[in-house]
Amino acid sequence: MSNEHTQAHASEHTGFPWKHVIGLVLSLILTFAALWCVTSFAFSPALIVTVIVILAVVQAFVQLFMFMHITEGSKVWQITAIGFGAFIAFCVVAGTLWIMLFAL
């Protein structure tokens, strides 16, 4: 654990910010991949929406780990809080759609 931290420390204090550039490039790739899925394919809307939502979730993880330093500080508590928030958010959105649109 402490080793990991000193390494992160070293790369953070000198040299080119590779982590950030990779984060930006990944974000751009994922964004344009989602746009490409929507504009170039004639699959069913359900399939396309599923794919672009997965791409969005991946991109959210890129932000959390590449830019937001979620693994620093009170690591476990932060991840628990964000995880719980994401769980509630998912329940609100998926639950609403399930009940109201699909009328099950």
């Binding site: 009170s74 508590w77 809080a81 928030g85 958010a89 609100v92 639950g95 649109l101």
Partner: peptide
């Protein structure tokens, strides 16, 4: 400093739920 940063993560989690409600309404 550490506690305030953690507190801000809690705010972000709550803000996420706020947006989830708006997303759910929009998708409806």
């Amino acid at each position: 400093g550490s506690l305030r940063i953690f507190g801000f993560w809690l705010f972000l989690a709550a803000d996420m739920v706020l947006f989830a409600c708006l997303f759910a309404t929009y998708l409806m």
